[in-house]
Simulated scan of single mutants.
Amino acid sequence: METRRTKLALIGIGAVGAAFAYALSLKRLVNELVLVDLDKNRAEGEAMDLRHGLPLIGPMEITAGEYEDCVGADIVVITAGANQKPGQSRLDLLRTNTRVVTDIAKNILKLGGEPIIIVASNPVDVLTFDLLKQTGLPKNKIIGSGTVLDSSRLRQTLAETLQVDVRSVHAHVIGEHGDSELAVWSQANISCVPLKYFFAQRGVPYTEETRAEILQKVRGAAYEIIKRKGSTSNAIGVALCRIVEAIIKDEKSVLTVSTSMKGIHGLPDVCLSMPCVIGENGIEAVLESLLNDEECEALHESAKVLRKHAEDMGLV
């Protein structure tokens, strides 16, 4: 049986795009990778650099190109847009990056086909919502990177706090990829042991203050990294690679990506992150988390923030 070739187009070769392309090449998840950027020299340089490592990894076709070279792409990943600056929130980027992503969407639509589009540009939730409106593609085909990275940050912070293997930590962040996101503490566990019991066994206070401090570390992680190195790139590159892997391998993995949430938990028509089943068809199911009253209220507050920004942009 012949294995189907897989083609991925990456739009935007800044720090995030380059980190994602590198992670993708190491895992060799696709047969063909096309890099597209307004700075053509940058795209060509990254493609050359990646190709030079292939003799140590394995065969893969990596090229720099134009939009027309993206024809036939199974997956399109968008990382293009203005960078978040020190002291700037993700939502401050809204107007600039909405124009950028809308323009990209128009160019992608001209190519025909129906690729799965993954958006990583910020503010990712509003941009995902915008793409759903602009493209008319089925909602399972438009995926925002959402809180996949935030959930990973929460797991890492809990692992460090409790001195346990991060792979044993099961916890997720939902809502906006931004300052109103929330951790689902009520369902978090360490290999099926509820957090409050594991904290007690480790002699660490499991208080409201402790949880608030951990969540603030997660929410503020990007700001701290930007302050030190100018941008976040490596972890979001890995997060994007994880989403692509779930699609390519039809894993049915549960990841907290951003998509339309109308009706879920009684939410309005917004895009935000909830646990979703990801497979070869993109988002195959949206799962309603078991939230307590406090978490449900926080989720609705997060949705209000995103709804207001969508309204300000005339998207609803």
Rank of each mutant, 00 (worst) to 15 (best):
Q187H: 03
E46T: 09
P194R: 10
P59T: 13
C241H: 06
L10F: 09
G58C: 05
L109A: 08
L93G: 00
D150M: 15
S253I: 07
S151K: 06
A82T: 09
A246I: 06
L255C: 04
S145F: 08
V270N: 01
V36Y: 05
A221Q: 10
I117K: 01
T102H: 12
L290K: 13
Q216V: 11
A212L: 06
A21W: 01
K196A: 07
L24C: 09
T96L: 11
T135D: 02
V36C: 08
S152T: 13
L54T: 11
G230E: 07
N97R: 08
N234T: 15
G58W: 11
C192W: 15
G17I: 06
T161C: 08
M313I: 06
S145A: 15
K217V: 08
A43D: 00
V77A: 05
V254L: 11
V169Q: 04
V30D: 00
D74N: 15
V77C: 04
K217F: 07
G136F: 15
A310Y: 02
V184A: 07
F198V: 12
C70P: 02
L149F: 02
G175C: 11
K249P: 01
Q187G: 11
G237A: 08
A9C: 14
R28S: 03
A82L: 05
I104W: 01
M261S: 04
T102K: 15
A64D: 00
L255T: 01
D150V: 11
R307D: 04
L182Q: 03
C70N: 01
M274P: 01
R211E: 02
V36H: 01
Y223S: 14
V257L: 06
E245R: 05
F20T: 01
L290W: 04
D312S: 14
S231K: 12
G263I: 10
L240F: 05
L182P: 02
P59R: 12
H265D: 03
A43N: 09
G112C: 15
D69N: 09
R5E: 13
R167G: 12
E280W: 13
E176I: 04
L315I: 13
G230M: 15
A9G: 13
S168L: 14
K227E: 12
L149N: 09
T259D: 00
R51L: 07
E295T: 05
I57H: 07
L290D: 13
S180E: 12
D74P: 07
A23N: 10
G266Y: 02
G17R: 03
A222I: 10
A64N: 00
